[in-house]
Amino acid sequence: MTKPIEVKQDAPIVINRTATKSYALQESAIVKWSLITISLLFLALFLILPLITIFVTALEKGWDTYVASITHPDALAAIKLTLTVVLIVVPLNTIFGVAAAWVITKFNFKGKNLLITLIDLPFAVSPVIAGLIFILLFGAQGLFGDWLFANDIKIVFALPGILLATIFVTFPFVARELIPLMQMQGVTEEEASISLGASGFKTFWLVTLPNIKWGLLYGIILCNARTIGEFGAVSVVSGHIRGLTNTMPLHIEILYNEYQFTAAFAVASLMSILAIITIIIKNIIEWKAKEV
């Protein structure tokens, strides 16, 4: 046996494009800087200024008003409801996403493309329609309306309706993040694990999950952001009962329409902070995933 060869054959080669660019592939400095300026101006107008508006308006009347706005009982109730929705919807969608990605990427079966289309469907459906369909099912005049009324079960204009509508809008996120990733990874590592005597559950836990963890987390983060912020679908099914069925975005709407701008933007600023945190976590995940 000879000495192990020390060449890292598949070591990733990182090339900094801009650093290695030959002269012929550079635009002139004028073109470059005008493109950068256009981009930054565009982003300023559409992203940065709106973000600043939120915080400036929220704090316009001072810190005390701000704190009062976000500690108002209705605001707290909205925050609590939103958290409840997140705690139920996100885990459900995560399990669904993993199961759907598993069946789609590890097996071949008839109707697979149909299944993928069904998973993509919510992206083509307006959130308002997402709310409408649950009214048609469970509303007073809906398909199950009489039965639900007779049994005194409330779905629409109550928490279950909000959950259903939110799930409809947010369930694709985890699955869509995982499917391409697991497709790329194939089944050989799972096969190797099983050929070495591991059970199906151990294979998933020890081999599949560590391989997909960043993608999974990424999907969860996106799903979470949309769950917190979903407005149209929830607006239809919630019934806007203050302190009871108002999620944070709905609470913002009510405050805004009542010209309580400072209060509206105060709650909005909380959600913006959550959004910024989401983006930061997302970037950390991307950075981690690249490392692996």
Binding site: L47, L51, I228, G229, F231, P249, I252, A275, I276, T278
Partner: peptide, 9 residues
């Protein structure tokens, strides 16, 4: 940001 920020906000 548009992915993360609630539409109402």
């Amino acid at each position: 940001l548009p992915f993360a920020l609630p539409t109402a906000v």
